[in-house]
Design a protein around this nucleic acid. Structure first.
Lengths: 268, 268
DNA sequence: GACGCCGTTCCGATTACTCGAACAGACGCC
DNA sequence: GGCGTCTGTTCGAGTAATCGGAACGGCGTC
């Protein structure tokens, strides 16, 4: 037998833990209520095995069983986990008041995101406070994911990755057209990232969706790594690309720089 | 052999899964960076065993290893879990726009919470938009927990529990004094809950902390269960208790009733 | 009432797990 | 420089925790 060559991690890997977490993750997609059999099919396990994991998760509070339908849904302990993840983010804590001020000052929606593989993950969000403002809402909330290549937040984060890491990430990108101006080639994106890196901010002119514009700036920690990015999202009817840069660019970059400074970043 | 009587769940229980999740939970308390040895001591396992779980969690993205310190922190996949938990809450989705409107209309901070055991868990939060407003912030964010017995949100949720369930919950309450007017006896709380139930809303007059007042109303689903509660939080210098009820009570209760109606609740 | 599906329980076979021991590296201390 | 002790990590042999098939009871439906 070869033995060692198969699987993913070979040596140290806990099958049970992986399967249990796989079951938990199954609740991400769509339906919030799942039964044992459904889950079993989802993760490719027998009903009995699935049930054991589900029962374990339920007694620990990670799942709750609906008394009527006998199906399971995520429990409050999962919330705990998620929130300790969020709250363990120094960046977010430090940035929150600055983002609020930025949103108040500009009247636009402010988002903060981190990079996770090909995706960006929203970790903070301040909706525009002006009631009359046209609502831009692709059903985004904290925790939402979007592909990095077609968002200002994603581009600014990719632009400040080390070249080998950036290339590794780009290998996995599916350059699907999502808006009128989506960058649909690796070559094009690389050129764009170069530009973003030089000018210190990223623009998005309807690359993700029709009518959506944004400008994003990076947040650096004390190592000089871009650990997060912050953007202003506007509707194309509200502002031209020129004005986006001229009127909002400075304020945005100043806010991002303040957050970076609080994280110990020393501007070169 | 007795066999079945020992342990917690007896029969179907996955040890590995429980241990793995225990390791994840260890990150809740304080330090966001933990090493293998620390974790091992935390959960009572050998370093090698702990390492296997940690490695598994890391390859799955639930943990990330800091390249310098070699210690681990929570990874982005944990965020996913937490957010699918939040987003699987129908209540929250339905309520969000109403809460925003309520906050805009009153100018005060609006909170929504659910009950989890003795605690309430914040699931939505709209900070007051008026800049001049005095900030009431006990470092609360979505996911924060507070004891139910000394909050308006908690009292209104407890008040609408079925008596046996309510009694079971109260058994675990530690009636610690947290503010000038904290209810510190089970007897007193039961009387208060009765009042809350009758009048349809709960008040908090500095029971949680000095200077903090709030008024809360329940949100019912189509079963008639109080699945969440919403409140308005104010500083005692801003408004008297009479005005809190007279000026804000109606608006708050109307907002809560609208959300309940959207969930299919039929007022009796 | 027979079928199909569900969640749940039980059991023996087996496989994936446990822990001690050992390694390599980092740090502090004489 | 050479201890001593702390890391994180790897390996292996013994064992205990896990696996999935089979069976039970409860629901709907045809």
């Amino acid at each position: 037998m070869v033995g060692t060559a198969d699987g993913e991690a070979g040596t140290s890997h806990s099958q049970s833990l992986e399967r249990g977490l796989l079951i938990l993750s199954a609740f991400r997609s769509g339906q919030p209520q799942l039964g044992v059999s459904e889950l079993g099919r989802c993760v490719g396990l027998s009903r009995s095995t699935t049930h054991r994991y589900v029962a374990t998760l339920a007694t620990l509070g990670y799942l709750q069983q609906d008394e009527e339908t006998k199906k399971y849904r995520l429990g409050p302990r999962v919330l705990d986990l998620g929130f300790s993840a969020i709250n363990s983010m120094e960046v977010r804590e430090v940035a929150a008041p600055h983002l609020r001020r930025l949103s108040d000052a500009t009247g636009f929606t402010v988002n903060m995101a981190i990079l996770d593989g090909n995706d960006i993950v929203y970790v903070e969000r301040c909706r525009s406070t002006r009631p009359g403002q046209r609502e831009i809402d692709l059903n985004l909330h904290i925790g939402s994911r979007l592909p990095a290549y077609c968002t200002s937040l994603g581009k600014v984060l990719l632009a400040h990755l080390s070249p080998p890491l950036r290339d590794a990430v780009l290998d996995g990108v599916d350059f699907a057209r999502r808006g009128p101006n989506t960058i649909t080639s690796r070559r094009g994106l690389l050129a764009e990232l170069e530009r973003v890196r030089e000018q210190g901010f990223a623009l998005n002119n309807e690359e993700l969706a029709y009518g959506l514009r944004s400008i994003a700036a990076p947040i650096f920690d004390f190592h000089g790594d871009a650990v997060a990015a912050v953007n202003l999202a506007v509707h194309s009817s509200m502002i031209s690309m020129q004005d986006l840069v001229a009127r909002l660019g400075g304020t945005l970059r100043r806010a991002a720089a303040e957050v970076s400074a609080h994280l110990g970043h020393q501007p070169a």
